[in-house]
Design a binder for these strands. Sequence first.
DNA 1: GGAAACTGACAACGATGGTAGTCAGTTACT
DNA 2: AGTAACTGACTACCATCGTTGTCAGTTTCC
Lengths: 207, 207
Amino acid sequence: MTATGTTRTWAGSTLAERKAVRRAQLVAAGRELLGAGQAVTVRSVCRAAKLTQRYFYESFGDRDELVIAAFEAAAHEAVAAIVEAVAETDGRPESVARAGVRVAVEQTIDDPRRGQVLVVAPVSDPVLFAKRDEMLPVLTALFEEHIDSDAGDSELVASALAGALVHLFFRYLTGELRVERAAFEEHCVRLLLAGGAGWRRPSVDTG
Amino acid sequence: MTATGTTRTWAGSTLAERKAVRRAQLVAAGRELLGAGQAVTVRSVCRAAKLTQRYFYESFGDRDELVIAAFEAAAHEAVAAIVEAVAETDGRPESVARAGVRVAVEQTIDDPRRGQVLVVAPVSDPVLFAKRDEMLPVLTALFEEHIDSDAGDSELVASALAGALVHLFFRYLTGELRVERAAFEEHCVRLLLAGGAGWRRPSVDTG
DNA sequence: GGAAACTGACAACGATGGTAGTCAGTTACT
DNA sequence: AGTAACTGACTACCATCGTTGTCAGTTTCC
């Protein structure tokens, strides 16, 4: 048998394998830069990955594609952890909400780099903002599945909830929100349980 | 009397007057560009203002300063209109919330350019994002003054509310949120009245 | 060993942006 | 009329970025 096409090896690996390695290196470098709040350009990411720019275009059409890949890598980790935690609850709404919030906090606040990628970076990168906006329904749907809310138009509810949580996490992560972690988590749980309501009694209900 | 220093005229106006006119032209040009979703650079804004770049540095240290000025101009209009509308209510929480939401919608959705500047542009410009973040407490404080909420930690409440409203307006303005205007406004009113709760009954309350 | 695939380093080009300066023409004051 | 302030048009320089190509050295296959 002759080694032709993609089976030819170089330093023990095929071209496809090398491409995959290089792609992973670039995505990891992109994550590092995003997580450190640094600019992601073709040059900066290739420098961080210790690859020449020629290899960038082997896997990505442009910088945006790379940045999205980096974001998705981080997001999938967080979502997977949340899904797992939720699956281990007894399924009661409060258990689900608590597990979800706990893990979300762990994934973003206890791992500041991932938090930076998922929560802070989208603020200054329209590409990431749009990507995050696209992925949020995945998360809200997960909770809607377990938490029955008779709160009204579900799209409005979901949007308000997403906006509220994203903003809370952003301010907490950047240190603008000076509250105890427990209070922060409790508030997020309440928001989820009420389909967005962290408050017991809307004023109109007691009027 | 001899005309010296700043009283010297050129085409009928003093240097100070000319500077003020040029500054206003640049701010207006900045607003136009932001409102049209176009990039604001020193070059683009001077082109739009029909002024040479030399005059840019007469009023602004850099591009960010100009962009902030443009944002502030738009924001002050909206805030002033909301303040006025609230002042004309009977002061009951529901009246205040309704007036506030109605005017906010008018200011941003009925005037798409201003809406673009205040709601959409901050998504792709970190300078504007930060500026808006800085100004949101002005608005939430206005409502807190009129709407008594026993909902808990007021900073957490205000942050969640701000995030929810900003996100709702963003999605509505960009056309992502396909709901009737009345439903949209009603939901925002409910959020305000509940200090963020658009929902009647958190599940835990009926458990 | 020769040829082709592959690598890493680098150059090149065009585009854009920020900032500052020059120059000829215009205006206003003395 | 002379001079200084002012204007508008433009140049110049530097930096960064995206994208592509070249070249010499390396590896692998036949």
